[in-house]
Design a protein around this nucleic acid. Structure first.
Lengths: 215, 215
DNA sequence: GTATCGATTGACACTGAGTTTCAACAAGTG
DNA sequence: CACTTGTTGAAACTCAGTGTCAATCGATAC
């Protein structure tokens, strides 16, 4: 049996029967595995629901490891890799989304899951960006923002899976790259000092007047 | 008894005895509450460890609700509000940090906790930013990046609490604001027009002189 | 003073997730 | 065949978290 089918089956049982009302025994039955084996395979009642992310995260990591793109673009590309995974497995993703709506515990779990992507992105960037003083923080901020954007747009799509939001994702990630790509140094603060002096004031008087204005 | 002392006590017990080796009964004893009351007060074994965030999140939200700053700056200010909370309660924060190092389950919980700040930031920005087409996504990306930066710098500080990292946090958040600020098509450029007119020049002559300077 | 009401607490029993242990049973290897 | 190694299921166990109910406390009314 495919390793992802149990996930789909579990999501289905949870949806029909309610998450809390479903015991792990019920799950094990539905998946035709013993309770023991269920835990060995999936770790926990919560984790079955996100079993596909294990595989997906692998794909993301190897995509980053072998990329030829510029660092920020590579992360963006990894982002739509994930997005496309959901589009391809539309049925499960939509069902899971509906389930999450009712089960806070699973929403929390999802958060933890998606944080693993953020970690992967950050670590990749830390190594791939040119060694400028702020690359550490650019890595952290960009990875977090990219994941957050991806998740927001993914949720919008899951809510209405008939609209193609891949272009939206692409354009938003590109906008993000632009924001971070051209990080300008701190702008020089210019001060304008206006002093009005009498006609015929000598140099010393003018300087004194400026000094006063500065105080 | 102060509501935060049980938290400190719990962290202490976990540290000395091990997280897994500590049952909720042990905790309840240490905090001098019955098991029942412990759950009513703190929700779960995991949540005691972050009990202070309930209060802190309130402070953050009311700070955002009453701010007079520009939206992005308001979020940054909320960021160092949180940071300063940890600096003030240095002892507990450092102890908790050490505890998290050994307990993955608590690290996950921390993630969920810190996501609540991100939500608060995003929602504030969604309402506070000017109604441009991309304000939704700027809100999401900026909030995520700000929280990630804060957390990274906080962790650095917790690792070495004798260095003052508030300036670092300030400058990184400011850099982030600049990144997102320059997203706007055209920042407001201030022009300084200097015209020098003869004493006794009439209004029309002065206006004419300014017009000339503008050309 | 005491009666009454509401809220907080503790004691206790119960459910169910997750772990551990052990035996059964493969499937390969000499 | 004997022997190893890995996978499975059965069963017992621990403990977090929930629900129920009675006791207690504090405030206000009488």
């Amino acid at each position: 049996m495919n390793a992802l089918d149990p996930m789909a089956a579990a999501i289905d049982v949870f949806t029909r029967q309610g998450y809390d009302a479903t015991t792990v025994d019920d799950l094990a039955d539905a998946v035709e595995l013993s309770r023991s084996t269920f835990f060995r395979r999936f770790g926990s009642k919560e984790d079955v629901v996100f079993a596909d992310h294990e595989l997906l995260l692998d794909r993301v990591e190897s995509s980053l490891a072998t990329t030829t793109r510029a660092p920020l673009e590579a992360v963006a590309a990894a982002g739509w890799l994930v997005f496309e995974h959901h589009v391809e497995r539309r049925g499960v993703s939509v069902a899971r989304f509906a389930l999450l709506h009712d089960v806070p515990a699973l929403r929390d779990r999802e958060l933890i899951t998606s944080h693993r992507y953020e970690r992967a992105f950050t670590q990749f960037l830390r190594g791939a960006l040119p060694d400028t003083p702020d690359r550490e923080y650019v890595s952290i901020a960009f990875a977090a923002a990219a994941v957050a954007l991806h998740n927001a747009i993914l949720r919008r799509w899951l809510f209405d899976p008939d609209t193609d939001l891949v272009p939206e994702l692409r354009s938003q990630l590109r906008a993000l790259i632009r924001s971070f790509g051209s990080r300008k140094p701190e702008p020089i603060q210019r001060r304008v000092v206006v002093t009005v002096v009498e006609p015929g004031a000598d140099e010393e008087a003018i300087l004194e007047s400026v000094r006063a204005a500065l105080a």
